[in-house]
């Protein structure tokens, strides 16, 4: 059904072109000037440049329909509709026709080409409609296939297989081993390093100190889905847990936890809110229970012993 419609529209477009070409070309040119030029005028992110035949040789072979479709859906580093999601399919097609017509010696090219538009413009234009999406989509991504991590030896036999060298940390989605790098959209996902740049560093987990980033105001995650003025009710209450054995006692700060979480996240399903009611052990934490529900999955991992075991037994009597 849809493809029939598409063919019909393509057909009528072709017919129309004979006499309506000037008007169409004009609107294509206009869109190009306001949107596409930012990438296709400069060649940024490997965008094929307007009028540069070498950039277009392979692309024109695909035909206009394919190029238009790619421009609409996004391809390689080009986000869907080049990030200008308000453009209609017909407008995209018009731009494709215009851009093909600018190729030297081939004004008649009935083939097509990708197109795109400027992510920046889109950001401004459609920020209200889809802020987060544009933010994600507009991120320039590293070339997907340019570099592959070089194969390493068997992980079991490498020095400390759990400690990644800096070159293997915070990899972009295209290289992290769990995303499908062959998917065009994977390249549109944000690169963690880009997000983590301004945040305080840590030695484990995401290599970012989330608590410090929050307390210093470097990030400002919402506490409510709709209302960005809502703030958490922070409970400043430390719970000291005496620890058997030689490790320092644990000081559990409600403060940092209530910045992120709701009471109901932990009480009463994970921890009974009563002194002495919870028998906590490192064994169950390592198995992903109790503190390990978050610590070791998302919150800082259990390798950071002293962040919890922070109260030296020899000092000061416990409460």
């Amino acid at each position: 059904m849809r493809s029939t419609q598409l063919s019909i529209s393509c057909l009528s477009l072709t017919l129309l072109l004979a006499w309506a070409a000037p008007a169409l070309a004009e609107s294509g040119a206009e869109t190009y000037r306001t949107k596409c030029i930012q990438c296709h005028g400069t060649g940024v992110l490997n965008a094929p440049k307007l009028g540069v035949a070498a950039d277009w040789v392979e692309r024109t072979k695909k035909g206009k329909a394919v190029l238009t479709r790619n421009a609409i859906n996004g391809i390689n580093q080009m986000p869907p509709k080049g990030g200008s999601l308000q453009l209609s399919g017909a407008e995209i097609e018009a731009v494709v026709v215009y851009m093909l017509a600018q190729l030297p010696g081939d004004g008649a090219a009935a083939k097509a080409k990708p197109v795109s538009t400027a992510a920046k413009t889109a950001k401004a234009d459609s920020a209200a409609a889809a802020p987060k999406r544009v933010a994600e989509v507009a991120k320039p991504k590293p070339k997907p296939s340019a570099k592959k991590p070089k194969p390493r030896g068997k992980p079991v036999n490498t020095f400390n297989r759990l400690m990644r060298p800096p070159s293997q940390r915070n990899l972009p989605p295209t290289r992290d081993g769990i995303h499908d790098a062959s998917s065009v959209e994977t390249a549109a996902l944000q690169h963690p390093k880009e997000a983590f740049g301004p945040m305080p560093k840590s030695n484990s987990g995401n290599r970012v100190d989330w608590v410090a980033a929050l307390s210093k105001g470097i990030i400002d995650p919402r506490f409510d889905l709709e209302d960005d003025t809502k703030k958490p009710i922070v409970l400043d209450l430390n719970i000291v847990r005496e620890v058997k054995g030689s490790m320092p006692d644990v000081v559990y700060p409600h403060k940092q936890h209530t910045e992120w979480l709701d009471c109901s996240n932990c009480h009463p399903s994970i921890f009974i809110p009563k002194k002495g009611a919870n028998n906590i052990s490192m064994a169950s934490i390592l198995l992903g229970q109790q503190c390990g529900v978050c610590h070791g999955r998302v919150a800082f991992p259990v390798s950071e012993c002293r962040k919890c075991h922070s109260k030296n037994k020899s000092k000061v009597a416990k409460k």
Partner: peptide, 12 residues
Amino acid sequence: RIRFRCKVCHAD
């Protein structure tokens, strides 16, 4: 978690 606190998804 840069954009939302845990509570939004895990409680609300």
